[in-house]
């Protein structure tokens, strides 16, 4: 559409290399970060219930809902200034055969009770008034992408069985899905690549 002089030949080569490199490096760096997290992180197992929607670009997935996704603020110590969209550190401890939130903190805690883990989360929204508010937390492990048409199968499968998700937790509290467990049996391990 432009009637300007053509691009110099050397620049066409540079442009091709530059753009291809950057556009390969962006997804590549996501892959590298995930591999580091999945191979070096701690493992915790969270019980969950899936539901089945579809993403515009990534296809079918199941939304995973955890006991630690919902926190009654009256029950746990938390920063007073807590607000929607805040990033927050969640200290969780084993309870029965699942995990429960024991406190919320603005910064990475220095000391932790034995057996506890820390997870980084976003405050999705707050509901209720004053001291009786409920916080909805998002850990970044709430979606599990499945081959087209198999979301319902997974949902059916877990209707009468217990589904849990194995989550890798990195040193900074970041979490990534590592595998699925149905009725105590590790049915699916996420490959690193």
């Amino acid at each position: 559409m432009t009637r300007a002089a053509p691009l110099p030949r050397w620049w066409i080569l540079v442009a091709g290399l530059l753009v291809a490199t950057v556009q390969l490096a962006v997804p590549g760096s996501i892959i590298a970060g995930r591999i580091a997290l999945l191979s070096a992180g701690h493992e915790i197992t969270l019980k969950t219930v899936p539901v089945d929607p579809r993403d515009l670009f990534r296809g079918d997935y199941v939304i995973l809902n955890f006991a630690i996704s919902r926190v009654e603020l009256a029950d746990v110590p938390h920063p007073d200034t807590i607000d929607e969209l805040d990033e927050i550190f969640v200290i969780i401890s084993p309870q029965d055969d699942d995990w429960a939130v024991s406190s919320l903190s603005e910064a990475m805690p220095d000391t932790m009770p034995p057996g506890a883990q820390v997870l980084r989360a976003d405050v999705d929204y707050l509901s209720g008034e004053g001291a009786n508010r409920t916080a909805r937390l998002r850990y970044g492990v709430e979606s599990y992408f499945v081959p087209e048409g198999t979301g319902r199968d997974l949902e059916k499968l877990v209707r009468d069985k217990a589904l849990s998700v194995i989550v890798a937790v990195g040193p900074g509290g970041r979490a990534a899905i590592k595998g699925l467990v149905i009725d105590g049996e590790r049915i699916y391990d996420e490959p690193l690549l």
Binding site: Q23, F57, R58, Y61, S143
Partner: peptide
């Protein structure tokens, strides 16, 4: 497509808008 594939592979919930922004910036560079 490759950004979407990677975030699908690792079940990255994240913010779907972030993936689209990375796509827009790379395309602008091109």
């Amino acid at each position: 497509g490759s950004i979407m594939l990677v975030s699908q592979m690792y079940h990255i919930y994240g913010n779907p808008a972030d993936a689209v922004l990375a796509w827009a910036l790379g395309t602008t560079l091109a």
